[in-house]
Design a protein around this nucleic acid. Structure first.
Lengths: 121, 121
DNA sequence: AGTCGTTATGTTTTTTTTGACATAGCGATT
DNA sequence: AATCGCTATGTCAAAAAAAACATAACGACT
């Protein structure tokens, strides 16, 4: 022992989503979009996140419909079977979401610290 | 007719939650806590939100456990059957959450406007 | 002692969400 | 034209979340 505060708890963290129409865009979909761009395809991104292609496609489609714009551009067939990448709009969406999130994190710092301080002990 | 942009969509909105331990505190639980204070009891608050007492109690208990502190103080029996109100900590939690949310809303204004602007049309 | 409205919980059913399969089409490359 | 990895969807099972139901106890007040 000698460890007074044995709180295994991770610190309080923000969970920011954007409600757009009837859908919700949060860290999961943004991460998926980011990986998609990185990997050059939906299936590769899905693999990295440990989810099925089916679901990944569904998530992406949700964003497409919610925004009313194409977030990813796909190509079927061809070398490697095909692929997908973010559209200009998609890239901007991801970037803006992340920028915004970073600012919100900073803005919430004090609140989160207060929470950690007085909850875990 | 005459209505060019027939977008019934509500504007994009933030959905901020706080992950604390393994639980998550968001607008729903905060609203419940607020109404609880307003109404002076769990059941009254639950009624106002259209959810069962069972669930309301469960939600509150979640917050209690996540923070590791009592957020509400209840009394059973007595005049009116009993009641519940926020503890000092509970009140502060609600207030700080709301304050924080208001700031995040402001901080996200531009992002949300951008989203509305380029999604719905 | 009996009634009342409330807190507190256990149990079960229903709904929603997520995951798993299955299949089809595409286009370049062999 | 046969193969390959990918996109695109339909369908069904499983898991998780929410709702519904069912009691029990409590304390004031009649």
């Amino acid at each position: 022992m000698g460890d007074e505060t044995k709180d295994k708890e991770a610190p309080a963290a923000l969970r920011v989503k954007i409600k757009l129409g009837d859908a919700v865009i949060g860290p999961g979909k943004i991460m998926l979009l980011g990986l998609l761009e990185e990997e050059g395809g939906i299936s590769a991104a899905a693999r990295r996140l440990g989810l099925t292609y089916r679901r990944a496609w569904y998530l992406i489609d949700t964003v497409n419909q919610a925004t009313g714009r194409a977030v990813v551009a796909t190509s079927v067939g061809g070398p490697g079977g095909g692929g997908a990448k973010l559209t200009e709009f998609g890239r901007e969406l991801v970037q803006r979401y992340r920028d915004n999130l970073a600012r919100l994190d900073k803005e919430s710092r004090e609140f989160l610290d207060w929470l950690d301080q007085c909850s875990k002990n």
